[in-house]
């Protein structure tokens, strides 16, 4: 539909966005790469010397690094498992005829709008606190010993908090997808003699695959960068029990002021994220084709 005139106008209109994002990608990233090869600590004045790969060496051989990678994986996969399975089940339930569906929907979606620092603090103090928390009260009421969630199972607790924030997102998207399922398709399957279970596996699930993919992709982007929840609840501890990669790099750079080491960690995080991203982009790309 385009004429030569509109084509050049189009290029002009796209360029600010492209240039800004290009700058945003290249400049800081190049600086991170540069810093990662320097001995550069904000607490140590004096000349910054070339460090070679030593920053990488220290970062990658630090036992905390492996813990962080493991924790990141557990966190992402744990939350993904809870939210997708829970999301499918909840969406199926909410798709049934009921009274007050609109209100239930609103109740379910609400946690998504709570800022991470608030949800982390509320869970930490009012639910998981071993003395005053609701969970402690429930445990005592049942005659059990109160459980100190954040010191005894810190990563699990954080997974629980983050999953609470993201379950609404998964549910809402899957519910939307369910509602777009053509009812004639269901009726045709019924006419063809498919049982409710068969309809679920042969029609509902394939129909949801695309949305489930999307849920996984988008959540992964956000879950790889979980930060505030850890900062507010455990500070990555006890020890490094709940430190993920993001938090590790943050600690290295802004708590220990080790710019070189933090940058090396940042680059490692970027590389790992890119490996994940390549898979994600392929899948999104495929999704966009149809």
């Amino acid at each position: 539909m385009a004429t030569q005139h509109s084509r050049s106008a189009a290029r002009l209109m796209i360029s600010p966005a492209v240039l800004l994002l290009l700058g945003w990608m290249i400049v800081p990233l190049a600086m991170t790469v540069w810093f990662s090869f320097l001995n550069y600590n904000l607490l140590q004045p004096g000349p910054r010397t070339f460090a070679g790969f030593s920053n990488y060496y220290y970062f990658l051989t630090d036992p905390a690094f492996f813990t962080a990678i493991w924790n990141t994986l557990v966190l992402v996969l744990g939350v993904l498992a809870i939210t997708t399975v829970g999301g499918v089940l909840l969406a199926l339930l909410l798709d049934q005829p009921m009274w007050g569906q609109g209100i239930v929907r609103i109740l379910v979606i609400a946690p998504f709008f709570v800022m991470p620092t608030v949800s982390a603090l509320v869970w930490k103090n009012m639910f998981m606190n071993p003395v005053n928390g609701i969970f402690a009260w429930i445990a005592e009421a049942l005659g059990l010993q109160p459980f100190d969630f954040l010191s005894q199972a810190p990563l699990f607790s954080i997974i629980l908090i983050v999953a609470w924030q993201w379950l609404p997102f998964a549910t809402l998207i899957l519910l939307t997808a369910l509602q777009s399922l053509d009812s004639e398709q269901m009726e045709a399957a019924e006419m063809d003699g498919a049982s409710a279970l068969a309809r679920f596996f042969y029609i509902t699930i394939p129909h949801l695959t695309r949305s489930i993919t999307v849920v996984i992709l988008i959540q992964t982007i956000f879950l790889l960068g979980v930060f505030a929840e850890i900062l507010v609840t455990t500070n990555g501890g006890p020890g490094t029990a709940s430190t993920n990669l993001t938090y590790l790099v943050y600690g290295q750079s802004l708590l220990q002021y080790d710019v070189g080491g933090g940058s090396a960690g940042g680059i490692v995080a970027v590389i790992l994220a890119n490996i994940v991203a390549i898979f994600l982009m392929r899948m999104i790309g495929k999704n966009l084709e149809n």
């Binding site: 990233l29 600086m31 790099v249 943050y250 933090g262 940058s263 940042g266 680059i267 994600l280």
Partner: peptide, 11 residues
């Protein structure tokens, strides 16, 4: 959007 923020935190 997929670039982790922490990768560019320092600069």
């Amino acid at each position: 959007k997929m670039m982790p923020s922490v990768g560019v935190l320092v600069p």
